[in-house]
């Protein structure tokens, strides 16, 4: 009978433990001492570990900014490389606290996957990469083409939609990861490779002869990419959202990694509220007063991060375009911190 009792106790423990899953994310992260960040492990400019194992990229720096805001230390992040296919399951199951993996915000993902998109940290759109030798100038000439695509992305659907809408025939070859898809394209299995335009520029650099390939001018979809969190923890949702807005606000106010210490003495009330020399906006989030100071000090403002990872400071050389601040004709706009 003793054994049976032990088993019963174990059963009860399992049953109760499993139902106590919705703890406060921030407290859990703090007591763990490290932030778990779901990132892309293979996309240059967004998430890619280098030869020394140092992660770089726009999404990577976003997680660093979060860690800076929480721990005052941008190194306290554990990056988990996720494929497009596995990313949502990893977030749902709690393996990662935040998913910053160039993920498109769509209504069904927002509502039925049990996650919330916080903000858009990169406005993207889907395009096509083809060989110059094909002499194709427009995606509309791709009737009957074979297209290599990565599985588990909005890309798969947009591709089918675009060809259907333009009454073109399509042969899709689907792969588990972007790596395999681009390799198959490079070996001639497909006429075109498709993904978000930012990804096309990044993948083109990895081809054997990158000058033999061009990105077609058509952008066939809206791909607002942004970090997402699990449903049901509003405080954590707010922290992630406002981390992006703090980086935008810093750029808008001209607060940079280099001048942030001087800006602490600024008389501009907007700067004072951002850096926490006035008000307690950081504490309202559950962080410290100087949360935004920490972000800018350790990681930089949005513009700096953009230029370093995907812009002029990177091999990708992507123009700001729609990702410029709203004051410069772009779409990046942060609600005021006050």
């Amino acid at each position: 009978m003793k054994r049976a009792v032990t088993t019963l106790a174990l059963a009860a423990a399992v049953a109760f433990a499993a139902s106590a899953a919705s703890a406060q994310s921030l407290n859990a992260i703090k007591s763990r001492g490290i932030l778990n960040c779901g990132a892309n492990g293979t996309l240059g400019g967004f998430g890619l570990p280098d030869a020394q194992g140092n992660w770089t990229g726009l999404d990577v720096d976003f997680c660093r900014a979060l860690a800076a805001a929480i721990f005052n230390d941008p190194a306290k992040v554990k990056f988990v490389a996720l494929t497009a296919k596995d990313r949502f399951t990893a977030l749902q199951s709690g393996d990662v606290d935040v998913l910053a993996r160039n993920t498109t915000w769509t209504s069904s993902r927002d509502t039925s996957l049990g996650l919330n998109f916080t903000a858009v940290n990169y406005y993207d759109g889907q395009g096509f990469l083809v060989r110059k030798a094909l002499k194709v100038n427009s995606a509309l000439e791709l009737n009957d083409a074979a297209v290599c695509v990565q599985q588990g992305t909005t890309t798969e659907l947009n591709l089918a939609d675009y060809f259907r809408a333009n009454k073109m025939k399509l042969k899709t070859v689907t792969f588990a990861s972007a790596d395999e898809a681009i390799k198959a394209y490079d070996s001639g299995r497909c006429d075109a490779f498709t993904t978000d335009a930012s990804g096309l520029y990044a993948e083109r650099l990895r081809l054997a002869k990158s000058d033999d390939h061009i990105v077609l001018p058509e952008i066939i979809s809206k791909e607002p990419l942004g970090p997402s969190v699990r449903h049901g923890d509003d405080q954590w949702f707010d922290i992630v959202k406002w981390t992006h807005y703090a980086m935008l606000t810093a750029e808008e106010l001209g607060v940079t990694k280099a001048n942030v210490d001087e800006q602490m003495k600024s008389a501009n009330p907007d700067v004072k509220r951002l850096l926490g020399t006035e008000g307690n906006y950081g504490e309202q989030l559950g962080l410290t007063k100087d949360w935004a100071y920490r972000i800018v000090k350790h990681v930089g403002n949005y513009g700096e991060v953009f230029e370093k990872n995907v812009g002029q400071g990177s091999p990708l050389k992507i123009a700001r375009g729609v990702n410029a601040l709203w004051t410069k004709g772009g779409l990046q706009y942060a609600p005021p911190i006050r």
């Binding site: 993902r109 798969e156 395999e180």
Partner: peptide, 21 residues
């Protein structure tokens, strides 16, 4: 799935799972 052949796992536990969640 690693060689791009659309079998049950690639289609169903790959794309369908990801789209429906």
């Amino acid at each position: 799935v690693f060689v791009g052949y659309p079998d049950l796992v690639q289609i169903f536990t790959g794309t369908v799972l990801n789209q429906t969640g």
